[in-house]
Amino acid sequence: MNKILCNRLEFCFLHEVDFTYPGTCKLKNGYKFHYLPTDEVELTISSKVSDPGALKTETVKIKTGADCALLTRIPIARVILVLTTSENEKYIVGSTQYPATYTYQEKIPVTEITFTANSCI
Rank of each mutant, 00 (worst) to 15 (best):
T72Q: 07
T111V: 13
T103P: 04
P99M: 03
G65D: 11
Y91V: 12
S95W: 02
K32S: 14
E16D: 12
K61P: 01
V60D: 01
T24W: 02
Y31S: 06
A66H: 09
G65F: 08
C120N: 13
F33I: 07
G94E: 08
I45L: 11
L43P: 07
Y31H: 14
K61G: 01
C120T: 15
T64Q: 04
T24L: 10
V49S: 14
T96H: 01
T111P: 02
F33T: 06
N118E: 15
N2E: 12
D51Q: 10
G30A: 04
K48P: 00
K61E: 14
K90T: 05
A77I: 08
T101R: 08
V49C: 09
A100C: 07
I80N: 01
K48Q: 14
V49H: 08
T44F: 10
Q97H: 06
N118W: 05
V110C: 07
L9E: 02
D51G: 12
G53V: 11
F19P: 01
V41W: 04
L70R: 09
E16R: 04
M1F: 11
S86E: 04
I76T: 15
Y31D: 08
N118I: 09
T64C: 09
I62N: 00
T59V: 15
Y91D: 05
T59W: 07
T57K: 10
E112I: 06
N88I: 03
T64R: 04
V79R: 07
A117K: 04
K90F: 03
D67A: 10
K28M: 11
E112M: 09
N2R: 10
S50N: 12
A117M: 06
C25E: 03
N29R: 13
V79N: 03
L27I: 04
L36G: 08
N7H: 14
Y102D: 02
K56M: 15
L83D: 01
K32I: 08
C12Y: 05
Y98Q: 00
F11T: 06
T103R: 12
